[in-house]
């Protein structure tokens, strides 16, 4: 294919933008890995110097001391459950809002969207009281419920947008075929909204995975605590084992990245590879 001058320019512009943001995004990650292989003394001396000897034992120490294995399993259980419930509930609600007209619909949508702007850090005492009232203090289910609820506004907002853009004709055809409400949702809409579900699901998973304040507030047993507790294990009021913390952070990133790649690669690519044509 022939390129004229402007498309050449566009080509360069594209790669300059992409490469520079890749640096922006990847540099913190590389630094983190590098820092996690130093000693604390080296890190405090100059955060950007290469370590004299790579301290790989920081990783085994971190896993052992903070018991990261168990915490990761807890986080996986809590985050996947909360993501599943969240996406189920918010997609059901989004489907109702996006594809139907009913009394109070706009108010409902506006209210749920307004939930996005609630400052969660200001709700420590109410949430503590509600979870105690429900008798869910120090349970995994308590955290699952809170995470599921907290992510509801954003997920519903995103999913409504994705449901809305599915052509009406498809749903109408299925309606004529005799599909009822639930069948239209499960068989027709969910598969078509897959990119949206994957995107909202990714965000929800990461929200659960990275949440720290409520994880500490609503639990007390180490047995049910999450990976973020493992990261905080290395810092306290007067002493911080930074390299231990960084090693824990690097370990904690891997599951999130896996979820992201799995959702994005499989779901979205599966979709564009064939089946659906708008």
């Amino acid at each position: 294919m022939q390129r004229d001058l402007s498309s050449n320019f566009y080509f360069i512009f594209k790669w300059v933008i992409i490469i520079s943001f890749v640096f922006y995004a990847v540099f913190p990650f590389l630094w983190l890995v590098l820092a996690s292989l130093k000693t604390n003394a080296e890190l405090l001396d100059d955060p950007f110097k290469l370590p004299a000897v790579f301290q790989f034992q920081n990783y085994s120490n971190a896993i052992r001391e903070a018991g990261l294995g168990k915490l990761i399993i807890n986080s996986l259980v809590i985050s996947t459950s909360a993501t599943f419930l969240n996406i189920l509930f918010s997609s059901m609600c989004a489907f109702a809002i996006a594809r139907h007209t009913f009394w109070g619909k706009n108010v409902l949508f506006l209210m749920i969207t307004a939930g996005i702007l609630v400052p969660l850090n200001a709700l420590i005492i109410p949430y503590f009281a509600i979870i105690n009232f429900l008798n869910l203090y120090d349970t995994r289910f308590g955290l699952i419920l809170v995470y599921c609820a907290v992510g509801l506004p954003v997920s519903t907002f995103i999913l409504t947008e994705f449901f809305k853009s599915i052509p009406k004709e498809i749903e109408e055809a299925s309606f004529l075929d005799g599909c009822n409400f639930a069948a239209r949702y499960f068989r027709i809409m969910l598969p078509l909204a897959l990119p949206g579900l994957a995107t909202a699901g990714t965000f929800q998973f990461i929200l659960c995975w990275n949440e720290f304040i409520y994880a500490m507030l609503l639990t007390s047993s180490t047995d049910i605590r999450t990976i973020q507790f493992g990261i905080s294990y290395f810092t306290n009021q007067f002493f911080s084992d930074y390299v231990g913390m960084f090693a824990a952070v690097v370990i904690s990133i891997l599951p999130s990245i896996t979820v992201f790649v799995l959702f994005q690669e499989r779901v979205i690519n599966g979709l564009t590879a064939g089946s659906v044509k708008g």
């Binding site: 420590i124 005492i125 503590f128 009281a129 105690n132 720290f212 304040i213 500490m216 507030l217 007390s220 047993s221 180490t222 605590r225 507790f229 905080s232 294990y233 810092t235 306290n236 009021q237």
Partner: peptide, 23 residues
């Protein structure tokens, strides 16, 4: 005696405030 591990002082203080005021 069972220890509940509180690694972050700021959050510990907020939690204690919540416990003092609600439960």
């Amino acid at each position: 005696v069972v220890i509940e591990e509180q690694t972050d002082y700021d959050i510990y203080a907020q939690k204690l405030t919540a416990q003092i005021s609600t439960g």
